[in-house]
C-alpha cells in the first residue's frame, strides 16, 4: 500500500515540435525523458519504507546500479495494454519501425520480451510496484557499506510480495517465485540499454542532461 501511494504520476516526453524527425531527435527526446524520470525515481525511492534509513552512500549505490532496471520496468508496465508497442511516455509510443529507425530495435525486442512475460503472468499493479522496489533493493551494487541493512530491506520487500501473493493469488503458490524469476531478464535488458546509451554518449551527437550523464557514468 505504501508503494502504491508512492507510485509517480504520468510522465510526458514532449518531443520538440520545431525539430525535424530524425534518429537524433528521437534519442534526444528519450534522453531528456530519462533525465526527468530519474529525478522522479530518486524522489520515489525515498518513499520506499526503510530506504531512507540506509546510509546516504548506500542509497546512492543502490540507485546508481538499479536506475535503468526501474526505468525499463516502468516502460514495460505502461506497455502491457498495447500490442508490440513500447510506451516510453503517454505521448511517446514506439512501434518496431520507429524503434528500428532510431537504432533501438535490439532494445525494443528485449523490452517486448519482458512485456510478453508479464502479460502472460497478468501482472498486477501491486506486484509491479513491489517488483520495482525489489529491483532497487536487489541491485547487487559492489559499493554497499552496510550489507545487513540492505538485506533487511530486501527481506521486507520480499515478505510484502509473498504476503500479497498468499492472500491474493492462492491459486498459484509459486507466483511470487515466477515474478522474481523475471528479474534476471530485466537485469540483462537494463545492462544492454546502459551500454547502448553510453555508446550514444561517446558518439557525442545526442545532447544529454547532467543527471542522466552522471547516472550513466556511474553505471559503466
Amino acid at each position: 500500500s505504501h508503494l502504491l501511494v508512492a507510485e509517480p504520476e504520468k510522465i510526458y516526453a514532449m518531443p520538440d515540435p520545431t525539430m525535424p524527425e530524425s534518429d537524433i531527435k528521437a534519442l534526444t527526446t528519450l534522453c531528456d525523458l530519462a533525465d526527468r524520470e530519474l529525478v522522479v525515481i530518486i524522489g520515489w525511492a525515498k518513499h520506499i519504507p526503510g530506504f531512507s534509513t540506509l546510509s546516504l552512500g548506500d542509497q546512492m549505490s543502490l540507485l546508481q546500479s538499479a536506475w535503468m532496471e526501474i526505468l525499463i520496468l516502468s516502460i514495460v508496465f505502461r506497455s502491457l495494454p498495447y500490442e508490440d508497442e513500447l510506451v516510453y511516455a503517454e505521448d511517446y509510443i514506439m512501434d518496431e519501425e520507429h524503434s528500428r529507425l532510431t537504432g533501438l530495435l535490439d532494445l525494443y525486442v528485449s523490452i517486448l520480451q519482458l512485456v510478453r512475460k508479464y502479460k502472460k503472468l497478468k501482472v498486477e499493479k501491486e506486484e509491479f510496484v513491489t517488483l520495482k522496489a525489489i529491483a532497487l533493493a536487489n541491485s547487487d551494487s559492489m559499493h554497499i557499506e552496510d550489507m545487513e541493512a540492505v538485506q533487511k530491506l530486501q527481506d521486507a520487500l520480499h515478505e510484502a510480495l509473498q504476503d500479497f501473493e498468499s492472500s491474493q493469488h492462492q491459486e498459484d503458490p509459486r507466483r511470487a517465485g515466477k515474478l522474481l524469476m523475471t528479474l534476471p531478464l530485466l537485469r540483462q535488458t537494463a545492462t544492454k540499454a546502459v551500454q547502448h546509451f553510453y555508446s550514444i554518449k561517446v558518439q557525442g551527437k545526442v545532447p544529454m542532461h547532467k543527471l542522466f550523464l552522471e547516472m550513466l557514468e556511474a553505471k559503466v
Binding site: V39, I42, G43, K46, G57, M60, L63, K210, E217, A218
Partner: peptide, 15 residues
C-alpha cells in the same frame, strides 16, 4: 562521491 553531485543533492533534499 563528488562526481555524483546531483544524485547526492537530490537524495538530501527533503521531499
Amino acid at each position: 562521491k563528488e562526481k555524483h553531485k546531483i544524485l547526492h543533492r537530490l537524495l538530501q533534499n527533503s521531499t
